[in-house]
């Protein structure tokens, strides 16, 4: 298989997988029952999306691997997700800010991918777009609600945004696989996508009465397998069973 395409699919799948894994940590610990359920829904959608993509890869790679080999048996540096999605949940403010940043990218990415020249990928984008649109609505509404809620919530949200804004840009910085896929008509033009997604995000932030932090330096590396310290711990937990009991069925 084309290595650029493989890596491009993994970037997409790993984003959904790692964020889904992070969100699933909230299950049973949410601030109110209804939101516990809602956030778990998003986790389910994202892990489901990752699964479609891992299944596609497994099929294309000739049945030598299974869908589970990708999330459970790769090492840190073979994961290509954004640094954003591996950041810890911290509290509801960080979780919502991270989600809203991701959802803006994810939604616009899928909007482009549904017209991809690659029919298998276009089909997955089409299937998951409805969910991503709902995620975007959910996290935007919460960003506004908490930004414009109480003084305390405003402060917490501003703090979270201040800490997370350095992870906004990476999604839109093309790496080699992105460029190759764009040239092949499979992937989106990230520069164009950036304009739309970031301007929408800034609008939501403005509506939330939060200030967009003045932050020049953006962190990157995840898309090429160079991660933050957090990913190793995520994998240590997530891969525990497969590593402890290799080669059996569950």
């Amino acid at each position: 298989m084309d290595q650029h395409r493989r890596k491009f699919i993994l970037q997409w799948a790993d984003n959904a997988m790692i964020l889904g894994q992070r969100l699933s940590e909230w299950c049973g610990h949410g601030p109110v029952l209804e939101q516990d359920i809602a956030l778990t829904n998003i986790a389910l959608d994202l892990i489901g999306e990752a699964r479609y993509l891992y299944q596609l890869l497994a099929k294309e790679e000739g049945g030598l691997v299974t869908e589970d080999d990708y999330p459970f048996l790769r090492k840190e540096q073979a994961f290509y997700n954004l640094l954003l999605v591996e950041q810890p949940n911290e509290d509801w403010a960080f979780t919502i800010v991270r989600q809203c940043i991701f959802d803006h990218f994810h939604f616009h990415f899928l909007m482009e991918m549904k017209n991809s020249a690659d029919p298998a990928l276009a089909a997955i984008a089409e299937k998951t777009l409805k969910e991503a649109r709902y995620h975007l609505k959910y996290s935007s509404e919460w960003l506004i609600r908490l930004g414009d809620g109480t003084d305390e919530s405003h402060k917490k949200m501003q703090h979270a945004l201040h800490n997370m804004v350095k992870f906004v840009g990476e999604a839109y910085e093309p790496v080699e696989a992105d460029v190759a896929m764009w040239q092949a008509g499979i992937g989106p033009d990230l520069t164009k996508l950036k304009d739309k997604a970031i301007s929408d995000l800034k609008q939501v932030v403005a509506q939330s009465t939060l200030d967009w932090p003045n932050q020049q330096f953006g962190r990157t590396g995840g898309k090429n397998g160079s991660h933050s310290e957090h990913l190793g711990y995520i994998l240590a937990t997530m891969q525990y069973m497969q590593r402890s009991y290799p080669g059996v069925e569950w």
């Binding site: 809620g149 109480t150 919530s153």
Partner: peptide, 13 residues
């Protein structure tokens, strides 16, 4: 307890 600020903010909003 960790959720109280979230519930309060949602109510205030």
């Amino acid at each position: 307890e960790n959720g109280s600020w979230v519930r309060e903010a949602a109510a205030a909003y």
